[in-house]
Every structure is written in structure tokens, then in C-alpha cells.
Design a binder for these strands. Sequence first.
DNA 1: CACCGTGTGAAAGACCTGTTAACGCAGGGG
DNA 2: CCCCTGCGTTAACAGGTCTTTCACACGGTG
Lengths: 273, 273
Amino acid sequence: MSTQAETNRLAVIDTDSGFITVLTKRLEVAGWHHRVLSTPVPPDELVAMKLNAVVLDMAALGPDAWDYLERVCGMLPELGIVVCSGRSTVAQRVRALRLGADDWIGKPCHPEEVIARIEAVVRRRRRSRVQSDVGPLTAAELEIRPDQFQAFVSGRSLELTRREFELLQLLAEAKGNVLEREAIYQRVWGYSMAHGDRSVDVFVRKLRQKLERGSPGWRYIHTHFGIGYRFDPESLVADGEIAMTEASPPATPEGGAPGEEQMTPAAGEPTAS
Amino acid sequence: MSTQAETNRLAVIDTDSGFITVLTKRLEVAGWHHRVLSTPVPPDELVAMKLNAVVLDMAALGPDAWDYLERVCGMLPELGIVVCSGRSTVAQRVRALRLGADDWIGKPCHPEEVIARIEAVVRRRRRSRVQSDVGPLTAAELEIRPDQFQAFVSGRSLELTRREFELLQLLAEAKGNVLEREAIYQRVWGYSMAHGDRSVDVFVRKLRQKLERGSPGWRYIHTHFGIGYRFDPESLVADGEIAMTEASPPATPEGGAPGEEQMTPAAGEPTAS
DNA sequence: CACCGTGTGAAAGACCTGTTAACGCAGGGG
DNA sequence: CCCCTGCGTTAACAGGTCTTTCACACGGTG
């Protein structure tokens, strides 16, 4: 809940163009990343897409539909699977659900209901997942650890407060992009910024202070006059000079966070400058 | 799938005797513990039942059905909620799903499908708490034994109460991760924390007290201001030093009750390394 | 040069946590 | 049947930490 703005990723495997058209329109409104496939792609590829859920029509899966469904369910236990198919019998629906599908919707159906059901499935999945979903994020000497609500430099904590940490995390996740004050405030504080509020500036200052104290030699946060701030680690010394204190590989103190690859929500898309 | 040694607990809130008869018969075959209710019991009571899921008919909930549904969903985010009702509109189904229901089935329906859908809903939840109850867990001088609902230090019990133990176990299993108060409360108490509830803090204090009494020289639970707590054993004495039991315990001579077990006069202890 | 936006420091105030004690409830024993 | 004891909950207070706000200096922009 706190980490909002998490975009959901969905694949639709179907051949019913009318259904797809209507559904994708709704998905765009809802802000889902989605991809339409007309043939059953190998489970491996589904894995690579890092999906949250998949909607599929048994009719589009060809003759080996049940095999395919079983393989996908077995291979991606964390994936939300919603079958949206034409006429079906109770036995078929029960079979799919037992195989591991999360829901079955009969066509014709209202796209809004499809989305609501997908969301229900994903919601349930989110809750059950251990909170190790977000891997540590590193930048220059910095190691940002969402699991600890804290940032480290060569193993030493920067002693950030909650707000400071969330601000840093937000900026770092948008690496390279300029974020406007209003947007920052909105996402860290959770509500709209009052006119004339300087909180963001004050926190940027505190953050810079702690960053410099723990990692002198680097500048992390840049100011864009009249706009906002941008995170982008920049060495203050010539490249080859970092003689001592190299030890760049941030030693993971111990918490064995699984080496989750960082799932980039959206491809970097620079906000105009 | 795996040994279904764990029985599922389900409540059915409905007044349709025919439906209930058929459904309960199937539930018995499937080995579910179930309870039939003809009126909407207060959410508190649902909590006490320690359910995995609930099946409910909007028609049986009376005039405040939507309110009730919303309250239950908000209070028991971990509970699987399946609505099984008569004729309905898309808008109603979407509303229920958005409120937090996991599935909506229209009557009439086949009991086998109802069960399959309940199982699909519960299936996800189960994954998360799979590995929790097996082997003993040790950390520093501590030995946490789920089979006894108790923690030990060099063989001596810490005399933890049930809640204290569950809290400790939860924290220890998440070793190294910060857990937010809401998350802790939800997983130990089983339902959502009311705003302003300080129970978690109080129990953390009791736990720290007992931990310190049994294992001075170590700090186990760390506070993260504005967030929650983190379990991470930390020695209070420098590594190479011979712990002299250096006055860490402020004695507290003025004993309250005479029966106070102040044992541990000098029992050998640290020696660890 | 005038104007606005940003950096900086400090102080007031809101919020959070540690700690203690009293209350109500349930189970066991007399 | 009543009393005793242990446990969990709730309220209240004290002490600290974090946020916000304000004032002023500095620097970029037109």
C-alpha cells in the first residue's frame, strides 16, 4: 500500500478481437501494462515478461489447451491466472480451478467485471507474497534497502528517517528523471501539496546532508531550477583517482535478501526538461 | 496437494437450506471444518473462529449487506471471501470484488464449483505460511521451538505467553527485515489493527524484558521509528572480550512479589563463542 | 537591477515510543 | 460456588524524535 504507483503487468491470450478491443481500452484507463498474444507462447516467455496476471481463452490455446494450462500453473505459481472463455461445463471450470487457475469467467462478459476479477486475484496474490519483492537498489556507493527502510554506504547505515528514506527511494527509482515537487510530494506524502509548502526542499537538504556525510565524493541529488529534483550519482573526483576506500562492492551485512532482479516498472521515459 | 494435514476452516452465511444441505455434504467429503450461520455475525466473532474463508449470500446479510461486507473485508484482509448469491448485476459483482471479496458466484450453482473456487481462493494464502511451523529456529543464544510454543536460552524456558511467543516467532522468521506494526498485528492477532492500538508496543516491551532477563548481553529487537520493529541479534559486548556480565542488569533489587523468580544468580552464561 | 525560486538554520509543535498500572476475562483449585 | 492467578487489553504519562514552519541569505532569470 505504501509503495503505490506500482504498475501491474498483464498478458491476454485470446483471438476474439472484439473482446480484446474492449478489454484493452479499459486496461489502459486502469493503467495496466498489457500485452496481447494470439497464440500460446511458451511458459518460459511468460516468465520473462514478469507478469502479475494472465487472462486466457481456452479456445485460443489450441488442442493442447489443458496441457498448456497445467504447465503454466505449475511453472508460475505466483502468477494470477484468469480463464475467460466461451460456453463451458461445470466440470471444465472445476478442472481448471483445480489445476491452479484462479478464476474462470464465462463469455460474454463485461470488461469491467473481468478487470475487477483480475484485480481481486492480484490483490490476493500480493498479500500472500512474502515482502521480499523489492530487491535492494544500488547507485554509486549507495545501497538502498526497502526491506530495512534504510540506505547504507559500505555497510554503514545513513540513519535516514522514514520520510527521508521514502524520498530517496522515490528519486532513486526514477533514476535520471527530473521529478517535479508536486509529484514528489504527492507520492511521498500521499496527498496534494499545499501552495508554498517547502517541505520537499527541506527534506532534500537533510538528505543531501546525510548523503554527503556518509559518502563524500559523490553528488546524488541535482536541482533543476523551477522544476524539481533529479537523482543521478556523480563522482566529484576524476575517475581513476578513487585510490583508497575503494571497496565499492557494498558488503551485504547479512540479511540474505534473495538476489531479486530489479523489475523496472516503466522503461525510462524522461519527462520533458 | 501436499499432505492436507491442515484442515480448512470455513463459515457459510446463508439461509438457503437446499443449498446449504448440498454444500455441507460436499464439504464433509472434502474434509473441511465448517459452520453454518443464518445471520451475519459480528466480524469479531468471525475473527474468533480463525477461518480460512467464508461463503456468504448477500440476501442473508439483511439490509446492511454492503456495509457488512465492507467491514469484514477491511477487518480480515487475510480471509478468503466468496459471495454466492442469486441474480445480480455486473455493477454489484464489481462492487463486491472491489470492496475486497475474492470471488462471486451466481446461484444456482454446482457445489463442486463452489468448493473449487473456495480452494482456489485459499490456495494462494496458504503458500505464504507454509514453511513456518517446522524446525526450531535459533538466533544468538536463543532457541525458538514452535513445537512447544516456547523459547529457550541454554535450556531454560523464557516463560513466554502465547502472544509473546507468536510475536517473537514472527519477528525472528523475518530476520533482518523491518516489520511494520500493522503487518505484525495482522499476522499475530489475525485481523486489522485499530488505529491507535498500542498492543504491539506493549508486547514488544514484555518480550524485551524477558529476553533481557534470560539473555543479557544481547539485543534482539530493534525499533525503527515511525515504522515498526526488526529482529536482529546483536551482542552488547565487544567480540574478543570476556563478558563479565557487566552490570547490564540494573539489578532492580526492590523486589515486588516475593515469588519473583530472580533466578539466574550467576548461572554460567555467555561463554558463547 | 528587480524578482522569484532555492539553500540554510533554528524553533515550535506534532507525533511516536517506552513504560507503568489498572481493568476485565477465563481457567483451575479449594 | 467462590476465590485466586495469569493473560491480554486499554488508558495515561513522560520523554524523545521527527515535521513543519518561519525567517533570512543566496543565486538564477528576465
